[in-house]
Nucleic acid binder design. Structure first.
Lengths: 189, 189
DNA sequence: CATCGCATGTAATAGGTTACATGATTAT
DNA sequence: ATAATCATGTAACCTATTACATGCGATG
């Protein structure tokens, strides 16, 4: 249900073809917000056009169709953006991994936390590089890059991940020094 | 592909039936890491059992089957946890909303950011309440609540959201006071 | 024995991934 | 002409959501 609004929003910012949108999902800052292959994008564009939320603005070479949002489309986007997000988004593999840490041996948990820290650093680098690219590209056309705020958001989330993982490492070490379940460690297993 | 490891991990911590796992996904701290209805849980448990990663430890009243992980299951979980997470998780409705902010009128963007701040506050309250519950419940059985670290992680992510939204509001106001695209506002539309 | 909650399932539909296919244009 | 890239699509499959169904066991 979100893909259609992703498309609607990108087209509201700037008209384009399915091919253009595919590239924006792959290459631009959009990839830090949502992902979709062209095989999902084209059918969704067709549906949006059928419902009158977008329309073909122009035909290009090959079979290229450049879409733009209609008034109704803009209204639909606005309505969706204003609708209160009520369910906490909870299908995140990184969070799941962190959730399951307690199911592992402490030594593994340490190792995995250190991996998470490295991962956060690496992804931070990626986003910052992408942001730099986007800033440079957009300084030519005068307006700030689409998704700049979202990229900053991504950075902050990753920084929070890094800080949390560092903190969690400390927690695990504390728990090993002063285990509260000494009395229950009889069987050994 | 992640659901199976969510189940494996929960069973590694403590054996249980599909019904138990359903409740853990709904009620406990698990709901801040992954979500699944029973209609997905039962078939996945069947598949895991067929592959020998879990097995029936005990049969209860009604048709209740209590599963536990096998050695192979534990190894599979370990391997998955240790595998480097390589793709940045990017299908998040909140992030998408933030990404699309630029497609809206500034006044709407303000309103939506304020909503996000309120949302973050509300969800922070929910997680903290759930964490308190879990702490109280687990103080009886001696070990820290499963998912405590993850709940803390969720809190930090929400705090980052709140801080970011506050910062973004400031950015939008700055952009309105000193718009860099004055020279291009000739056509009006 | 009626009802409530436990415990599991099926079926229909929607959303998403991967592999494969194809024609049109530009570049060499 | 041939290759590369643009531009779009189909088909098979997997994952997830929603609605509906059912039978067993405890409780009053």
């Amino acid at each position: 249900m979100s893909l259609r609004f992703a498309l609607l929003g990108m087209l509201a910012y700037e008209p384009g073809s399915g091919y253009d949108l595919t590239k924006r999902f792959q290459g631009g800052l959009g990839r830090f917000a949502w992902q979709a292959p062209h095989t999902r994008i084209y059918p969704e564009l067709a549906k949006l056009a059928e419902e009158g939320l977008i329309e073909v603005a122009e035909h290009g070479p090959r079979r290229r169709s450049i879409y733009r949002v209609t008034e109704r489309g803009r209204a639909a986007l606005q309505a969706w953006m204003e609708a209160p997000p009520d369910a906490l988004e909870v299908r995140s593999e990184p969070v799941l991994r962190m959730f399951l840490l307690s199911a592992l041996e402490p030594a593994s948990a340490h190792e995995i936390l250190r991996q998470q820290i490295a991962y956060a650093e690496r992804k931070l680098g990626e986003i910052r590089a992408a942001l730099d690219d986007a800033m440079r590209a957009s300084s030519e056309d005068g307006r700030p890059p689409f998704g700049r705020l979202a990229a900053e958001f991504g950075c902050r989330q990753l920084e929070a991940l890094r800080e949390w993982a560092t903190w969690a490492l400390g927690q695990l070490e504390d728990a090993e020094i002063t285990p509260q379940d000494c009395e229950t460690v009889a069987s050994g297993d």
